[in-house]
């Protein structure tokens, strides 16, 4: 179901909203009843979950942006967790 299929397409759940908080200078994920404080990589991953790219493309993009070569397994496990929590929908 989750991100292990590199050809799947992750998309932020309708109920979830990403926000850069200008007042507190942090990246947040807003949900109906809670606010999740994201670290830099979490925010970067979720920011690319817009339904327009596959997990493979998302990994490529982030490896390019962060100038790193070995992000795949970290990203997959983050997406697994995020879809388990209902933050992203993977189709």
């Amino acid at each position: 179901m989750a991100g292990h299929d590199l050809n799947a397409t992750p998309r932020l759940a309708t109920k979830a909203m990403l926000k850069h908080d200008n007042v507190r200078e942090v990246e947040l994920l807003l949900l109906p009843e809670r606010v999740v404080l994201l670290n830099k990589s979490g925010a970067a991953i979720l920011g690319l979950c817009d339904g327009s790219r596959t997990v493979r493309q998302l990994v490529d993009q982030l490896e390019h942006d962060f100038e790193a070569a070995d992000l795949e397994s970290d990203i997959l496990s983050f997406l697994d967790d995020a879809s388990g929590r209902g933050w992203v929908v993977v189709t």
């Binding site: 926000k19 908080d21 007042v23 507190r24 947040l28 807003l30 606010v35």
Partner: peptide, 9 residues
């Protein structure tokens, strides 16, 4: 004004 105060939801 709420947004300026830091309200998120």
């Amino acid at each position: 004004q709420a947004a300026e105060l830091g309200v998120l939801q």
